[in-house]
Structure formats: C-alpha cells, structure tokens
Write a protein that binds this DNA or RNA. Structure first.
Lengths: 199, 199, 199, 199
DNA sequence: CATGAATGAGATTTCATTCAT
DNA sequence: GATGAATGAAATCTCATTCAT
C-alpha cells in the first residue's frame, strides 16, 4: 500500500481551490498554470500529474464552484422550515448573499458563462446546477399552490422568472455594489416575487 | 487631399466587426490578432496602426456591442407610442429578442461580463449602458405612476427588477434555447412585471 | 505585392538545411527546435511560421534528404552512358559514395529508418525513393538482359538484391569506416553484382 | 539470507523486456520511463534502482536485442550440419526470418542504428554483434574454399557482402512486407550469394 | 497606408530523476 | 526493495507586437 495514501484528493482540492482564487483575482484570461501552482504552493509539474491538462483543471473548478453555490442554497432551504413563503425568502436571500459573501465563487461562476458559449462540457455542468435549482424552486412553489397560498403558475415559468431575477440582480450587485445593499435587493426581489405569485 | 481620406473610420469599423464575429465564434480565450485580421480581410500588422494594442480593440468591440444593444431597445421604445404598458412591453420584447435575433452581439456582451470583473475600463462602458437603460425604463415607469396606472415603486428598484429579470431570462434563452421560446419568455416576463407594477 | 516576395521558399530551405545538419550532428533524439533555430540563424518563433509543428519540419527534412540521394544517383546514371555494366557500376559508386561524400545526408536518412517504423507518412516518402531507385535500377538490368549481356532475372528481385546490398554495405561503411574504403567496397559490390547478373 | 535474493536479475530482465516492447511499439522518440514502468508492471521509481539512468536501460536493451539476434543465427548454424552451402543457406534463412518472426527485436535493432551514429557505447555493442557474425560467416566460407566448393574470396569481403545483402533485404522486408515473402527473399538471396561464391 | 515576415517572451506540457515513506 | 508523489528543467508551441519594405 502506498505510504501517501489519501493524498491525491487533497492535492486535487488544493489545486482547484488555487485555480478558483486565481480566476477570481485575475480573471479567466489572466489564469496561467504557473500562477495556479504558485498559489497552491506546489511545483508547476504536479498540476499535470493530477489533471491531464489546463482544461481539466477548469472543469474541476467549475464543478466545485457550482457545487458550492448549490450547497449554499440547499442549506438555506433546509433551514427555512416548511412555509412556502419562508422557503422562497430563504432562496432569495441565499442567492443574493452568495454573490457578496461568496464573492470569489460567484465571480468565477460568471466568468465561466462566457466560456460556456463555446464549450458544451462546461455548459453541461451549468445545466446540472440549473436543473437542481429548478427542482429546489419548484417544490415550495408547488407546495404554495397546493396550499392555496400562490396562484396557479407554470412551475417551469416560475423557475425561469425566479432564477432569472436572482441572477440578474446578483450581477448588478456585483458590478455596482454602491447602488443598493444585499438587504435592499432581497427586499425588492421578495416584493416582486411575492406579487408575482400572489393570488 | 489624400485620396483615402475617411478610410480610417471604415477600417476601424471593419476590424471591430471582425473582432465581434470572432469573439462570438470562438470566445474570448480563442481570440487572436491573426484571426481578427483574417476575418477582417486585412494584414495582422495593420491592426496596430488603427488600435494601439489588443485591449484597445476589445474596448472598441464592447463599445460597439453596447451601442448595438442600446439602439435596439431605444428603437423599440420609440416605435411603441406613449402608453406606459405598451412601452414596457416593447422593452421586454426588444431585450429578449436581442439575445436571439442579435445572438452574436448578446454572446459577446456576456463574454465581457467576465472581463469586467477585473477591468475598470470595460466596467465603465457597461455602466454607461445600464445608466441609459435605467433612464429608458424609468420614463415609462414614472409616467405610469403619474398616470395612476402603476403603483408607487422606487424607480431605481423597478429598474433593477426589470433589467435583472430581462438579463437573467436572456441568459436562460441563450444557454437552453429548447426550454422556451422568446415569445413565451416575453409573455411570462410581461406577466411578472405587470403584476409587479400593478396597483 | 509583398515587399519580401520569394523569401518564403528560401527560409524554408534554410530551416530544413539546419534541421538536417542538426540531425546529423546530434541525432534524432538530440534535435530541438531551439537548436534548429540557432543553426538556421533565426528566432525560434519563426519555425512555426513556416511549419505547423516539429513533425512538419522533420517531414520536409526527410523529403529533402531523399531528393538529395535521388539526385546523386540519377546524375551518376546520366553520366555513365548507355552500356548496362557501366550504368550498374555508376549506380554502385554513386550509392556507396553518398554514404561518405554526403555523410550528413546519409546519416540522417538512416536515422529516419527508425522513425518510419511508426510513422506511415515518413514511410511513404521513403517508399517513393525506393520506387524511383527500382526504376533506375530496372532500366539497365532490363537493357542488359535484352542485349544478352545479363542472364534472365526478375527485375523486382534484381532491384531488391542490388538495393539491399548497397544499403547494407553503406551501413558498414558508416559504422566502421576503417574496415574498408569506398573504392574497395565498390569493387567487391561490383564483383558480386557482376557475378549475380552474369549469364 | 534475504528472501528476495536473486530477484535483481529477474527485475532487470523484466524492465529490459518492457523497454524492447515499448521501443517496438512506439519507437525511440516515444519511449518514456513511465511507459516502460507501466509495461513492466512496476513503479517508475524502481527503474532507477536497477539502472542508473535511461541510457543504461537503453544500453541493456540493445545488448539483449543483439544477443537475441546472435543466438538465433548461431542456433540455425548449429542445426545445419557441416556442408558449407547448407550452413550458408541456414544463415540466410535465420537472418531473414528474424526480421519477421522476431519483428520486435529486429525493429528495435534498426531503431538503434540511428542512435549509434552519435553514441560510441551503442556502436561498440553493435560492433560486437557484427564481429561475431563475421566469424560465423567466415567459418563456412573458409571451409567451402578449402573444400574447393567456393572460389577464393577474401573472407572479410565475403562477410561484408553477405551481411550487407541480408541487412538490406531485411530492411525491405520490414518496410514493404507485401513486396515479397521471406521464402522468396531467401531464395533470391541464396541464389545471389551462391553465384557470388561459385567457382 | 499596408504588408507579412520576424521577434521573443511566455504559455502549456512533458519527463527524467529524486525522495519520503 | 518498492512505491508513487513531487520536482524542475527543458521542450514545443502561441501570439502580441514590431518593422523593413
């Protein structure tokens, strides 16, 4: 048995985290293997021991980033109890919070949008996140409809509206942090979505 | 007087258009000066005669792209008459249409989002577009409020909600064109925004 | 029209010649793009301007080397007049001479044999040379047979015997130059082939 | 006494065999320590325990390959009895057969020719093989001359002619297996050498 | 104005070798 | 003996930029 058993996943994690930090700091076009290695505190050669090439590292980075965002929202949902409105509010807060509290992750996620246009592999990872998000959104919406708290809307359309609004407002929070706070944004998003779903 | 007077703006236009096409086809990371030159039908050397460096070309490309989007929305607004709801509807249609009918432009615009995170110059150009858009949105909203057709909302917040929703839904139209058509998206966006502004 | 028209073929030639010299000096495994560039007196970057990659340079080198060998033999044949035995003698001399007088070319040619085992492209270039050589050999042999000077042998087999002997003896001249001189080798090869073809 | 005593020679053999297989499959330029280790079923690190460096492994590989070829020819000679012509025939068959039946070994041997040009150590190993081959050839030739079956030729020249022809024809069998079979090649080589030595 | 050859810095990638376990 | 992770030098290749013509 290897004397260094179990090191591999740690090294991979270490490299991927360095990649994300590097992307957040210097952007997609500023990312180099050397910088990643330096930030990870390893030699440049080792990157190709754990990943076949640069793209594989980027794929792993996007997977990590989407998993992070996913986890944040799912955790918020879990904490929010069973009330449909409360769950919706938790979702809004978690999403908007992410773009500020997990700024690195969110920035890297947005950076990948550009690449996704030309890379089906990256697009598929993103699609997975959005599918899970739609399921997460669909549950409280359907529950609210059944309970007579929300009007009858198509779950697909509701998910598109909710996700769209949160992505778009998060972008604005990122580009112009002075314009309004997360709390303010959360309030008017809740307001808008509340009216959108109200009977 | 030189026989080629006035050629400069044409050459610049030619180069910038080639850059946009190249960005749309191969993405930000696939953009090279040589490809731009080939697509523009000029020699690689000439690019540095009209632009100091690669970044200057990218800046010009973003300026062109934002101006294009701007023009599309402004034109739709102008055609839509004076009724606040009609103007809002025109805005929704123009924005969502852009991401499909002017796919190249929209894709390039999204690709720049990633770069803006690390480039204040690009961010400023984007800020200009959003400022103009907010003004464009603000007018019918204020008008609707004055006319008693819309409830009293903060114009800033309304602009954030409207722009956010349209950006976010446009993204979904881009990444997953099968999910719903532009017409469907326009309908549910109008619906959501109508309820958001309804008294 | 370009101010540097006609430079391209010269540069290609320059690079290929440097590659051949480099291969002859340091061998296939010692060949680097940097060394080739230095020997050619150009910058490393320019190599990829004229050749897509290292392999393309190697292909051009093999093509040049085979053309060189071809030319040497064809020229000797042309000088040798019409007598079948004289032509055969000229062929033997030209081939064995090449391995000494054009040592660089011959060494590089032998070095490529190893690569040909795994590279169909290189193999095809070699096959072209051997096809031309067989034709060159076939003519005096057939002529000699018709004239009653040689016994009836299959031209294919005669070509295999003649080419085989010359390649094999050239190899020995290369590896052990002290063993016998070119003149000696030419004499006993002529002797052996003379007896092989004698009636 | 160590339980693993005597393991060393086995490991060395294992590594050298893997090297030969690797060279035959992917060529000299495709050989890496990692591939050798994988093919040998050992860890990359262990290679440097049994061999000081890559070159040492290559030297061992060439030694093994030449010993293999040597053994094949010597065995054929031994089986062929005492008649000079029969021994010569056995030699021709054994050599040509090797390039087909022991294709891996022969291919690797040819690959080393290129390296020998620049490596005196490898050249010396090859020289040893050729010296033994000349002795092996010299005996039946001298015997045939003494018995009055062959004409008086210089043994050195006869060896050069015989080895040269066999190497050259083997090369052709390798590069163009469709051209003629081993049996055909053996026939015309015997024919040519028979006439060469006939009184 | 325009060309396209040329440069050279730097990016990705490969790989022989080392070494802690 | 044996492992395989780790290193770092060097290789190939890319590309923004320059410049003679």
């Amino acid at each position: 048995m290897s004397p260094k058993v179990g090191v591999a996943p740690l090294r991979r994690e270490q490299i991927v985290r360095a990649t994300i930090r590097c992307l957040a700091r210097e952007g997609y076009s500023g990312l180099t293997m050397k910088k990643v290695a330096r930030l990870a505190g390893v030699s440049p050669g080792i990157l190709h021991y754990y990943f076949v090439d640069k793209r594989a590292i980027l794929v792993a980075a996007l997977e990590t980033v989407t998993a992070d965002l996913d986890r944040r929202v799912a955790a918020a949902q879990a904490r929010s109890g069973q009330d449909p409105r409360a769950r919706l509010r938790a979702l809004v807060h978690a999403c908007l919070q992410s773009s500020v509290a997990a700024r690195e992750v969110w920035i890297v996620f947005v950076e990948f949008w550009g690449e996704m246009m030309h890379d089906a592999g990256l697009r598929a990872i993103n699609a997975g996140l959005y599918a899970r998000m739609r399921r997460l959104i669909g549950m409280p919406v359907a529950q609210g409809i059944r309970a007579g708290r929300f009007r009858r809307v198509s779950p697909i359309e509701a998910a598109a509206v909710i996700l769209g609004l949160l992505d778009g407002v998060s972008l604005q929070l990122t580009f112009d942090p002075q314009a309004f706070s997360v709390a303010t944004a959360a309030r008017f998003c809740e307001d808008a979505l509340g009216r959108y779903l109200a009977r």
